[in-house]
């Protein structure tokens, strides 16, 4: 309540920012202390709108993972301000930041990061359980999502019984199951062969991309560039070209 009032006082620019999924202003991030301190990101200004998939590309070590970690609230910026879904992340207490993440952000990782003790459907159900649902109720909903991803026959398989592509589909189900408004994917296809990688991106485009949601994909896998609706290039911690509509998104 209070935060909305303050945002209203910020005038039209505040209103615009609220319509954005993500907006970064002057964001930089340092690692290390003293003489080893290095600046990884330099004054990033960035807006990401809802709808479609925004690709974040650039050479290794340029700061892509650091940037999405900041957007997800897993890291805190050294300077600057990050708004996600209109919320100023720095204004949130640590506990409410965790809760904000639980409700609004889905993750897909290069290493899948499934929990080996849980079977496919239990893994996909985790975000709902984190939100406070019982495991049995969460599993029912997760089964529907897995089914849509073509994994209906593998619900009770454990991660080690699944191929990389199948594991990544379970991870996609986990990122979608609680219907978050932002999905962050860090190199979702890097650990997959070309065919599985393309299949995963096709599923992402079909199921994840929606006008209500922003999907951010960090990648340097050129094979999947055609799935980008927008591309942001990062070079040595700076945005190379202002975010531009790619226009020639895949059909």
């Amino acid at each position: 309540m209070l935060s909305e009032d303050t945002q209203n006082q910020e005038g039209s620019s505040g209103a615009e920012e609220r319509a954005l999924a993500v907006s970064c202003r002057g964001v930089s991030r340092d690692f290390g202390v003293g003489p080893t301190q290095t600046r990884v990101l330099h004054g990033i200004d960035l807006d990401i709108a809802f709808g479609g998939q925004t690709f974040l590309v650039g050479p290794s070590g340029c700061g892509k993972t650091t940037l999405v970690s900041l957007i997800a609230g897993l890291l805190i910026p050294t300077t600057g301000r990050i708004r996600v879904l209109g919320k100023d992340l720095q204004s949130l207490s640590p506990a409410s930041l965790v809760e904000f993440r639980a409700r609004n952000i889905g993750f897909i990782f290069q290493q899948f990061n499934l929990i080996p003790a849980l079977n496919a459907v239990e893994n996909a159900a985790v975000p709902l359980v984190v939100q406070g649902r019982s495991l049995s109720a969460a599993v029912k909903l997760a089964a529907i999502v897995l089914d849509r991803l073509g994994m209906g026959n593998y619900l009770t398989y454990f991660p080690w019984q699944l191929s990389g592509g199948q594991q990544q589909r379970v991870a996609i189900a986990r990122s979608l199951v609680h219907n978050p408004r932002i999905i962050i994917c860090d190199e979702p296809t890097a650990a997959l062969d070309a065919k599985s990688g393309l299949a995963v991106m096709a599923l992402m485009t079909e199921l994840a991309a929606s006008p209500e949601r922003a999907v951010i994909v960090v990648t340097h896998d050129t094979r999947i560039f055609s799935y980008a609706d927008r591309t942001i290039s990062l070079m040595d911690g700076r945005i190379e070209t202002s975010p531009s509509s790619d226009g020639q998104a895949h059909s």
């Binding site: 997800a72 897993l74 506990a95 965790v98 809760e99 904000f100 993440r101 639980a102 409700r103 952000i105 993750f107 990061n113 929990i115 080996p116 003790a117 985790v126 975000p127 984190v130 939100q131 986990r174």
Partner: peptide, 16 residues
Amino acid sequence: LRHFAVLKAIGTTNRR
């Protein structure tokens, strides 16, 4: 530890 970190990222509080 990695799985606890995943749970943390997904939104599990330290208390939980």
